[in-house]
Design a protein around this nucleic acid. Structure first.
Lengths: 339, 339
DNA sequence: TTGTAGGCGTTATCAA
DNA sequence: TTGATAACGCCTACAA
C-alpha cells in the first residue's frame, strides 16, 4: 500500500502539501496540485482512514452492541443505523453475539479499545449502574429498548405497556373476554410492561385478572409452546391468546394446532413485535408493530445530537400500533351468523 | 481516556515497561509489574487497539461486503463469520447496503482505507476483472457464492446445479411430471445453474424440456408472484412448482392460494435456500437447504489459511441437500387412495 | 530487567 | 503557497 510519503516523493512536494490537496484544507498551486493528483492515481493511493482519525483524536466510528446478528429484529436495527451513519461519514462497528453479562462487558471493552466516538447499546445483561458509570466516563451513549431513570436522556424505548394495552383492547373489542396471556421473562422490564398493559385493559373493561390464564414464556418459540401447553393442562376456558412476542405466538400456534384448535376459528391470537414473517404465517398474524426502524433512526439522531451538543427533537418513547391481519376472530359477527 | 504515557508516569516506569506487562512480551520484575497493574486499574486504561495494530502494520480486522444486512441470509453469514473471527482475535468490519456496482466499489475502497487484513466479498455487481485485480493487488480475498475461474482458490460456492437437480428429482420421484420452474434472474450464474439442474433432471428422466412451464422471477416474493401468474395465464397443465428460491416460492404460494389451488393437494411446491421462515409457512415448505453456516465457516477458514499461508482443507463447492417438509404430495400414494 | 529512540501514516502548527 | 516539525498512542529494536 502506497503511503503519503510515497506520493509526496513521486510528486516532488512535501507530505503536508499532499495532505492539503487530499483534504482541501488549504489552497495549493495548480501545477503542484496536478502533480499530486497524478501521483495519487499512479500509486493507487488511498489515505489510511484509521490513522487519519487518530491524528484528529476521533475515530469517526460508533459502536453498537446487540445480543445477536441473526433474526429480523437486530438486523433491521443494524441496517438502519449503519445506513444513517454511513451517510453522515461515520462508520459502525458492530459487536454481537453475547447474551451474558461478561460477554457484553467484553463487547464494551472491545469497542472502547477501538475508541469509538459513541456507543449504541441494546443489552439487557448489563446492570443499570454499569451503564451509568459508562456514561459518566464521558462517552456519548444511547440505550435501546430499555429504560434507566438516571439516564432518561439516553434511553429510547417503545411504550410496551401501551402495546400490551392495544393488543388486549382489540381482543376485547372483538368480543373476547377470556384472554390468555403468555408473557416474556418477567425479570425483563419490557415483558412486565406488556403484561401490565394486558392487566390494565382488563381492569378498564371490568374483567377480573385471572392468574390461571397467564403463563410465563421466554420470548422464544419453545418457551411459547411450553407456556401454551401449561395453560391447556390447566383446563381453563379461553377464546383468545395474547402472546408477548411473535415467537411466543408461533410456539403457541403450533401447540394449538397440534391439539386440534383451529385459528382463528376457535382461538384468536395476537402477537407482538410484528417481525418479518408474521405476515407469512398461516393465518397471517395480527401483531403489535414494534417501530424498529423509527427507534433506530432516533438513536442515530440522538447520538449525533450528543456528539455535536445540539439539542434536537427525539422521541424517547415510541408508540406501537396494531397490525391487523387474520389471526383474530370477531365474536360478535360470529354470534349473529351462529357459526 | 488514559494513555500508555499516563500509566507509565503513574507507575514510575517507562512506556516500554508498561507495554511489556500488557503484552507479556518480556519478563518484568514483580514489583514494577504490580505498580503497572495498579496504575492501569486506577486509570481504567485500555490500549488503543487500532494504534496497537498500526504499530504492527496490520489492523487485526477483516472486511466483509454484503448487499444488505436485513434478512436471514446475510445476517446468518455475518453472525457466523463475526463469531469465528472474534474467537481468532480478529474483528469484522461490515460494509453493507449497496446493490450497485458503484456502491460496492465504494465499499471496497472504504474497507481498504481501513486497512483490513483481508476481504470477504458477497457481491454480484462487481466485475470479474475488478475482483481479479483486487486480489492481484495483494489483499487476501474470498468470494462468496460466486465462481470466477481465475480465482478458483478464492471462491466458495454451493453447487447450485446439484440443488436444482435434487429438487427436481424429488418431485419426479413423487410422481410429478409436469413441473413448473420459476427461475431467478438469468443474468446471475446461480439462477442459471439452478435452472440447469432442473433441465438435467428432466432430461435424465426422459422428459422433454417445456419452455411454457418455465418463467423468470427475480428472487423476490413479488417476482415469484408475477411469474406464477404468468404461468397460470398460459393455461398449461402442471402438478408441481420448483421455485428457485424461497421468496419466489412464497410469492407463488400466495398466487396459487388466491387462485384456489390448495398446496400440496393440487399443486406441490419446492423452494430453495431453506431460509428461516420456510419451516413456519403453511404448509411447511420443502426446500433445498443452502448451507449458509458451512459456507461462512469455510470462508473464515480460507481467510485464515491465506493470512498464515498454511494450506488447509476447504471445500470450495458445498453440497446442498433437500429438507423435506409438507409442501409436496406423493402422487403414487394418491393414485391408490384415489383422492 | 529496564529505558531510550525510532517508526507506523497522518494532520496541524508554525515559520518561511 | 509551501515545507519542516511536532504530535497522535503504541510497539519494538537496540543499548544499557
Amino acid at each position: 500500500m502506497a503511503t503519503l510519503k510515497d506520493v509526496s516523493e513521486l510528486a516532488g512536494v512535501s507530505q503536508a502539501t499532499v495532505s492539503r490537496v487530499i483534504n482541501g484544507t488549504n489552497r495549493v498551486s495548480h501545477d503542484k496540485k496536478l502533480n499530486v493528483v497524478k501521483a495519487i492515481n499512479k500509486l493507487g493511493y488511498r489515505p489510511h482512514s484509521i490513522v487519519q482519525a487518530q491524528s484528529c483524536s476521533r475515530s469517526g466510528s460508533v459502536g453498537i452492541i446487540v445480543p445477536e446478528l441473526g433474526g429480523p429484529f437486530y438486523s433491521t436495527i443494524l441496517d438502519v443505523v449503519d445506513k444513517q451513519f454511513r451517510q453522515l461519514g461515520y462508520h459502525v462497528v458492530v459487536s454481537a453475539g453475547s447474551n451474558t453479562e461478561e460477554g457484553q462487558k467484553e463487547s464494551v471493552k472491545f469497542l472502547l479499545s477501538r475508541r469509538v466516538d459513541a456507543l449504541i447499546v441494546h443489552a439487557h445483561q448489563l446492570s443499570d449502574d454499569y451503564l451509568i458509570e459508562l456514561q459518566d466516563s464521558g462517552i456519548p451513549i444511547v440505550i435501546l429498548n430499555r429504560f434507566i431513570p438516571e439516564m432518561n436522556t439516553s434511553c429510547i424505548n417503545i411504550d410496551n405497556e401501551l402495546g400490551g394495552k392495544i393488543a388486549t383492547e382489540y381482543l376485547l373489542k372483538m368480543g373476547h373476554e377470556n384472554i390468555v396471556c403468555i408473557t416474556g421473562p418477567l425479570d425483563k422490564s419490557d415483558a412486565r410492561a406488556r403484561l401490565q398493559g394486558y392487566r390494565n385493559s382488563l381492569m378498564a373493561a371490568g374483567i377480573a385478572y385471572d392468574e390461571t390464564l397467564v403463563a410465563e414464556g421466554d420470548f422464544t418459540e419453545q418457551g411459547g409452546a411450553r407456556a401454551m401447553r401449561k395453560i391447556l393442562k390447566r383446563n381453563v376456558q379461553f377464546t383468545a391468546v395474547f402472546a408477548s412476542n411473535d415467537y411466543i405466538a408461533l410456539g403457541a400456534l403450533e401447540v394449538l394446532n397440534e391439539e386440534g384448535f383451529s385459528i382463528p376459528k376457535q382461538v384468536s391470537l395476537v402477537g407482538f413485535d410484528d417481525i418479518h414473517f408474521a405476515r407469512y404465517m398461516t393465518p397471517k398474524l395480527t401483531s403489535v408493530n414494534f417501530p424498529i426502524e423509527q427507534m433506530s433512526l432516533e438513536s442515530v439522531q440522538l447520538i449525533i445530537q450528543k456528539l455535536s451538543k445540539n439539542k434536537s427533537d427525539v422521541s424517547f418513547k415510541l408508540l406501537p400500533s396494531l397490525v391487523i391481519r387474520q389471526s383474530v376472530k370477531d365474536l360478535h359477527t360470529t354470534l349473529n351468523i351462529n357459526n
